[in-house]
Design a protein around this nucleic acid. Sequence first.
DNA 1: CCATTTGTAAATATCGATTTTTTTATTGAC
DNA 2: GTCAATAAAAAAATCGATATTTACAAATGG
Lengths: 216, 216
Amino acid sequence: MQLLRADIIDGALQPGSKLKLEMLRERYEIGAAPLREALSRLAGEGLVVAQEQRGFIVSGMSVEEANDIGELRLLLEIEALRSSLRLGDEQWQTRVITAYHWLDRVERAPNPGNGRLDELERRNFDFHEALVSACDRRWTLHLRGIVFRQHERYRRLSRIHSAKTRQVSDEHRALFDAALERNEEAVVAVVTSHIRRTTKAVTEALRKRQGDEGNT
Amino acid sequence: MQLLRADIIDGALQPGSKLKLEMLRERYEIGAAPLREALSRLAGEGLVVAQEQRGFIVSGMSVEEANDIGELRLLLEIEALRSSLRLGDEQWQTRVITAYHWLDRVERAPNPGNGRLDELERRNFDFHEALVSACDRRWTLHLRGIVFRQHERYRRLSRIHSAKTRQVSDEHRALFDAALERNEEAVVAVVTSHIRRTTKAVTEALRKRQGDEGNT
DNA sequence: CCATTTGTAAATATCGATTTTTTTATTGAC
DNA sequence: GTCAATAAAAAAATCGATATTTACAAATGG
């Protein structure tokens, strides 16, 4: 299940592609029943689409959805952050500091080689996760999780086309500083431009990809 | 699946209760495989919780979650409404007018007997659905759907304790008028007080219920 | 030559039975 | 009498096989 989800998010299983049960059973070496359960759960959160009597497909990607998801990510992230900033205790601070430390380390690393991309993504995830980790709103976190994963799928796509991590690193620093100061408005401002910038890069990458496909 | 979901939402299957597979198989007359798939999908959207190797339970209800869900409902409903008001064409208008007509009819009906409660809830659903039906943001609608269903679960609870539908009817009228005028800010204002009022009633009902349980 | 139909192959969905895990009950020791 | 260990029962998860359904291809009729 985790593997399947990861393969969808990182694009190993392409958007829109049919998920042949037989093929997946071989790939992950599991039976039909657990596989269908996993797919059903993913369908519930929208990563795959169940087509009655016609199996499952990886849910599609488009410029429209990229914008939609970007705005939702923003909305939910802000909700979670506001709550987390208010409730965060010392342990929260420690989590944020630690997570930022590792993220910064990877972002500063000289070689952003293909192997490091996964680590970068993981550290990025951990950092944002740490920031909202004091939020006590279960449902906000649940929905944020769903949207975050979708957003990550799009983000990966843009990484393939343009790998300018410089400014992202600065944005993370600003986010880190504002968070520790418990300055809600500053955090909101930073995260807003951070996410909107990402969305912009994603839509550009998507348009480019659609263009490429037209020439194939 | 639809039946199972309905039974969870209308409280036939109580929050926190264990979902014995054998029992459910009898109740809905289906095999284990489709049942587990349905439960997995519901787990994906959070109506049930899957406990590894220990089956499924109906996800719990609490005052904290009621508030969380209420605020999310508000957030997502506003997003969807704004988009829908901008894009709505003549067909949208027709859908809204029709849906309001039926809702109004049920709300005005003299006898809000137990049988009518389901219809009221369905018409209410249809009306709100019609209002956002011109929104083209798939993900916003998807998340709104998840939250709406959760919110409905809580709303039903409050209906049991207090059945004052008078003011709700007025709120719907105001919402209807503002929507047809395409007055975004007015719609937002009305829907905000509408949902917040609902949340308040729900939390009161919940506290009352928790009190009752203490005396059992 | 195109459209509709029929047959075949592939894939999906479902069922019944088996295996594994958890929970409950019982026994024995301290 | 209480706790721990063990045995029995119940429940959940998984597997292999079967029954539907859909997709594709060939053939027939217009």
